[in-house]
Design a protein around this nucleic acid. Structure first.
Lengths: 167, 167
DNA sequence: CCTCGATGAGATCCGCCTTGTTCACGCTTG
DNA sequence: CAAGCGTGAACAAGGCGGATCTCATCGAGG
């Protein structure tokens, strides 16, 4: 799927013409790009987070010659998928059936009911998995009491580091 | 920036109301999510590619207890930023100034001029690099007539390889 | 109100990124 | 619709740094 396909799909979904969908899609990616470039984190709940991260100086090499090249510190965009996106991709969750909207008001109404049905369905699937996990935890606790003390030290360090990270 | 902010920014850009922008934004992320979940690669030229990748079985641990947990093989979404996105974020490239569109026709007109200005601006940066490259090609052609035949062979291989890659 | 996201520690696996070339595809413009 | 330009993929080797993911809790967002 490429940009044109995406635009077509969005247009079909919201009942807009191709032009309007194109404008919206392009605007969205442009907004994200700019915001991230400015250092803003762009968080879409359930889908994921786009942000700018620092990449420290390091070395790479030219595979043709083996020559080592020094890379300067730089900043790169990063995306972290949200929990819902992950679950859908892994198969752990199914999305509600999407209703191709004929009108705006109709679309929002159909979506409201669909998402309610979806949350019920996913609730059932999530429950069994969690029951299996607690049993393993019980065993692990017995064998790892000493590790807790070291954990506290590194906790303090990371806490301060993260407060410095502004959004 | 969160989803609501994004929607607001997109609405302002395309001169749509909040509702229409919401529908478009939600539809877009929903489409991407579903496509990736189905195994489709979603490629937005310049911005990046979303795709599903396999993650092998491995171990993780509960940071609170230190308990080791076995993770099964799974599939996760992955995003690879496109070159333009990377360049903008790193500061190597600047985007054209975005015009907040008042009307559709006005928007496309403003965009047309903006992208022309952008290509000129980027052209200046790209131009010096490209001038250096052609010179190398010329030299390479003169000294490497035999390589062309091998190049064709590898091309054929690549072509077939890519046909196998479905999108 | 409900769901999602951030946070903790840390082992292991994975990804990054380099230069240079070529070709296919995508996208924008005329 | 056609053409031209830009993007992206593929490939080579490989070391080093980065990312992942766990469970449970609390705060933020929808």
């Amino acid at each position: 799927m490429n940009k044109a396909d995406l635009i077509e799909a969005v247009a079909g979904r919201v009942g807009a013409d191709k032009k309007a969908a194109t404008n919206a899609v392009e605007a969205l990616f442009d907004v994200i790009t700019r915001a991230v470039a400015e250092g803003q984190k762009v968080a879409i709940s359930g889908f994921g987070v786009f942000e700018k991260i620092e990449r420290g100086a390091r070395t790479a090499r030219n595979p043709a010659t083996g020559a080592i090249v020094k890379l300067k510190k730089t900043q790169v965009p990063k995306f972290r998928a949200g929990s819902q996106f992950k679950e859908v991709v892994s198969g752990a969750r199914k999305l509600a059936k999407a209703a191709p909207a004929a009108a705006k008001s109709g679309a929002s109404a159909a979506r409201g009911t669909a998402s309610k049905a979806a949350s019920k369905a996913t609730g059932k699937k999530a429950a069994p998995a969690k029951k299996a996990a607690p049993a393993k935890k019980t065993v692990a606790k017995k064998s790892a009491p000493a590790k807790k003390s070291t954990a506290k030290k590194s906790t303090a360090k990371k806490t301060t580091a993260k407060k410095a990270t502004k959004r």
